[in-house]
């Protein structure tokens, strides 16, 4: 049976910062939402927690692309995480959780699994 999920409204378009990330609080804990207006899709959501430091900081990293892959660099120890898959480019045994994200009118919604707080590092 598929786990129950729901699309949680986390913020509005005005909260987003182009080419950068913001952090939101969800039922599943802190999530980083990135808005890259020059890409398709333009929205990405991954866990806000940096698996290497344990600190909630990934939304504050610099975004970009490495060999075409959209990434964010951890602001603490500079590892890169794929915004699509959550996999760490420097160490593919580590990945952060990713979340489906969509724009609903003016609302940004994340697909969050209810009551299922899983750890973020692989």
């Amino acid at each position: 049976m598929k786990p129950r999920t729901r699309w949680e409204a986390v913020c509005t378009v005005d909260d987003l910062v182009p080419e950068s990330g913001i952090a939101v609080w969800t039922e599943d804990g802190p999530v980083a939402v990135f808005y890259l207006p020059h890409r398709l899709p333009a929205l990405f959501a991954i866990s806000h927690s940096d698996p290497f430091s344990g600190a909630n900081v990934l939304a504050r990293g610099i975004t970009g692309d490495l060999k075409g892959e959209p990434v964010v660099a951890s602001p603490l120890y500079k590892q890169h995480f794929s915004l699509r898959t959550g996999v760490c480019l420097e160490d593919d045994t580590v990945r952060v959780k990713t979340y489906p994200v969509l724009l609903d009118g003016n609302q940004i919604r994340l697909e969050v699994r209810a009551n299922q707080r899983e750890s973020i590092a692989a």
Binding site: V10, G54, N56
Partner: peptide
């Protein structure tokens, strides 16, 4: 900190006191 929850404290920021001042207890991996 969290654009949709202004009063939400960051749960990983835990503190202890050492030599009369506050310092983090967070262990980095």
């Amino acid at each position: 900190e969290f654009v949709n929850a202004p009063s939400q404290a960051d749960p990983v920021q835990e503190w202890t006191v050492e030599r009369g001042q506050r310092r983090p207890v967070l262990e980095s991996a």
